[in-house]
């Protein structure tokens, strides 16, 4: 069964079709990228998947269950970490549980063991302002994980980072995905990043946003170190550029 799938999603705003007939699939523990230029409706699709924007037509399934227009099932993470400054880190990350009616104490108990896994041990009682940028991103990811049933949506989460930090966080992310059995949909406009991280890349083109093509990256995810320096990578990139160019 797929972790997540959308079927023929269409959504328009004031008569203008933003995304049209979008069908994507995400298998368990897969990382799939949505690659597209700005204005191709990636964010609209995101809002539909997370349930805060009902589609005009089409459906969203999470582990086979119809969750169309039902928020609170799939959480997402943006470039901005959006941590709440007035809450301690542990309360920030366990907020999704509290929103579902779990008591503060119980939510903390559930979140606490995950801090070590996410490299955040010892920050539980701090306020977000005391964390570094990278730690804030990791805390935001932990919150996303606790707010999702095994599927995380990431909207250009690392685009503000410098190349070296980005490389480190890529490796870390692929690693932690494995450990906590997370499936990921990753939105980006960075072709290299999409190819480097993904099992598959959906290429979106704009007005209206549609899935133009799907490219499979064959190299296993645990052998991606230095992948971007191989001819294999370049041929993938050439493929992608061709699809983006041929509109």
């Amino acid at each position: 069964m797929e972790a997540l799938s959308t079927q023929h999603i269409t959504r328009s705003f004031s008569g203008r079709v933003i995304i049209q007939d979008i069908s994507i699939r995400l298998k368990e523990q897969e990382l799939v990228s949505l690659l597209g230029v700005s204005g191709s409706g990636k964010t609209t699709l995101f809002n539909v998947i997370s349930g805060i924007l009902p589609p005009d037509s089409g459906k969203v399934f999470l582990h086979g269950e119809d969750v169309t227009g039902r928020p609170g099932q799939i959480s997402y993470m943006l470039q901005k970490d959006l941590l709440l400054e007035h809450m301690k880190v542990i309360d920030n990350v366990s907020l999704p549980l509290r929103l579902k009616g779990v008591s503060k104490k119980e939510a903390r108990l559930q979140a606490d063991p995950l801090f070590e896994e996410f490299g955040l041990e010892g920050t539980q009682q701090l306020y977000p302002a005391a964390l570094s940028g990278g730690m804030r991103q990791r805390a935001a990811l932990l919150r996303t994980y606790l707010g999702s049933r095994g599927v995380a949506l990431l909207d250009e989460p690392f685009s503000a980072l410098d190349t070296i930090t980005k490389g480190q966080i890529h490796t870390w992310y692929l690693d932690i995905m494995e450990k906590i059995h997370l499936s990921t949909i990753f939105i980006t406009h960075d072709i290299d990043e999409a190819i480097l991280l993904s099992d598959r890349v959906y290429i979106m083109t704009g007005s209206p946003g549609q899935i133009k093509d799907e490219i499979v990256i064959d190299r296993p995810r645990n052998e991606r170190q230095g992948f971007n320096l191989t001819p294999e990578f370049l041929s993938c990139k050439k493929n992608v550029l061709q699809v983006l160019g041929n509109r």
Binding site: P71, G72, S75, L84, L95
Partner: peptide, 14 residues
Amino acid sequence: VDADEISLMRAMGA
């Protein structure tokens, strides 16, 4: 309040 913050809260089911 950042509008993105409110969207995220809604996505988390708030």
